[in-house]
Design a protein around this nucleic acid. Structure first.
Length: 292
DNA sequence: ACCTCGACCTGGGCGC
DNA sequence: TGCGCCCAGGTCGAGG
C-alpha cells in the first residue's frame, strides 16, 4: 500500500533521526528480503557505517550511508521506523486507510524482519507482514545506474515529470490509462489508490485506452498527479508527522479519498453510485457519470 | 516487443 | 463460535 506519499512521509520521518547514527549491529530475520548483495555481505558492509541522509524516488526510500546507499522497496506492507528503546515501548497502531504504522516506538514483533542497532542504542526497524519488500545496497556513486532506478520513469514531484513526456509514453501503449498509470516506467510512485483518485480528479474513465487521451486530458493528469500526491503528503504529514505522539486519528484522513474503496457509495461530485470493476487486475472504483 | 496473468505472502472479513 | 474461502495490491517472471 505504500505509494509515493507514504514513502515520502516515511522518509521525512526518518530524516529527522537517522543522519549521524552509526550502525553497530544488524539483525536479519528474513534473508530473502535482502536482494543485493548477498545477505552476509550486506550485513558486513552496513555494520560500522553511519547514515548520512535520506532520499526517495517513486515508492523507493533511499537510505544514504557514508559509502553505500540502501534502496528499500516497501512492497505492500513494509514499514520502516526509528525506535528509541529509552523512551518507552508502545503497541502497534496502524492507519485504517494506508495501513501505515502510526504509533512511535513499537515493540519489534514477529513481523519485524530487519533491525539495525546504532551505537547510541537507537534502532531502525523494518516490519513487513507479507514480506513483499526488498532491500538492495549499492555503492553510493553507482546508485543512480542500478537497474531498479534505471527502470523508473519520471518521479511526479520532480522536474522530469512533464506533460510532453507523458504524452509520448501514453501514445505508445495500447493499455488502459489505469494500467498505464500503474506502470512505474511511465511515471513512478503511483499505486492503485492514487491512480483511481487522479483519474477521478481528471474526469477520465480508467477504462479509456491510454493512447486515446487528448492532449488536454493528459495535461490534466500531469497537473493533478503532483497536486493529489502533494496534498496527500501534507495530510499524512498531519497523521504521521508527529512521530512521537501520533496515535492514529482515523477521522482525519478517512475522508480524503474520493473514490478509492468507496464503490457502492455516492459519487462525492454528482451522487451517482460509484462503480467497481477489476481493471488491469486491480480493483478499480470510479464514477461513470463524471468520468469519460 | 508488448501485454496479461498468476505467484509471492499474511491477516481480515464474510458466509455458512 | 469456528472454519475455510476470498480478497487486498506491488512487482516480476512465465506464457500468450
Amino acid at each position: 500500500m505504500p505509494e509515493l506519499p507514504e514513502a515520502e512521509t516515511i522518509r521525512r520521518g526518518l530524516q529527522k533521526y537517522l543522519p549521524g547514527k552509526t550502525v553497530a549491529k544488524v539483525t536479519v530475520k528474513e534473508r530473502k528480503l535482502i536482494r543485493v548483495p548477498a545477505c552476509e555481505e550486506f550485513i558486513k558492509r552496513l555494520t560500522g557505517q553511519a547514515f548520512t541522509g535520506t532520499r526517495r524516488i517513486g515508492k523507493i526510500v533511499i537510505l544514504d550511508l557514508e559509502k553505500d546507499s540502501i534502496l528499500v522497496r516497501l512492497g505492500m506492507t513494509g514499514q520502516l521506523t526509528f525506535r528509541d528503546p529509552k523512551s518507552g515501548d508502545t503497541a502497534f497502531k496502524t492507519h485504517p486507510v494506508t495501513k501505515l504504522q502510526t504509533s512511535s516506538n513499537p515493540v519489534p514483533d514477529k513481523h519485524t524482519h530487519i533491525i539495525a542497532e546504532h551505537t547510541d542504542g537507537t534502532m531502525l526497524c523494518y516490519r513487513d507482514i507479507r514480506k513483499f519488500g526488498k532491500w538492495l545496497m549499492y555503492a553510493k556513486d553507482e546508485l543512480w545506474q542500478c537497474p531498479e532506478i534505471q527502470a523508473l520513469g519520471p518521479d511526479p514531484l520532480s522536474a522530469d515529470f512533464t506533460c510532453e513526456k507523458l504524452c509520448k509514453s501514453l501514445a505508445r501503449t495500447s493499455r488502459s490509462i489505469k494500467t498505464a498509470l500503474l506502470d512505474q516506467s511511465i511515471v513512478c510512485g503511483i499505486g492503485n489508490i492514487y491512480a483511481d483518485e487522479i483519474l477521478f480528479a481528471c474526469g477520465i474513465s480508467p477504462l479509456r485506452q491510454a493512447s486515446s487521451l487528448t492532449e488536454d486530458e493528459i495535461s490534466r493528469i500531469a497537473c493533478q498527479t503532483p497536486a493529489i500526491l502533494e496534498a496527500s503528503i501534507s495530510r499524512n504529514g498531519t497523521t504521521f508527522s508527529d512521530y512521537r505522539d501520533a496515535d492514529g486519528n482515523p477521522g482525519e484522513n478517512v475522508g480524503f479519498l474520493q473514490v478509492y474503496g468507496r464503490s457502492g457509495s455516492p459519487c462525492p461530485s454528482c451522487g451517482q453510485i460509484l462503480k467497481r470493476e477489476v481493471v488491469g487486475g486491480r480493483g478499480t472504483s470510479w464514477c461513470e457519470r463524471c468520468q469519460h
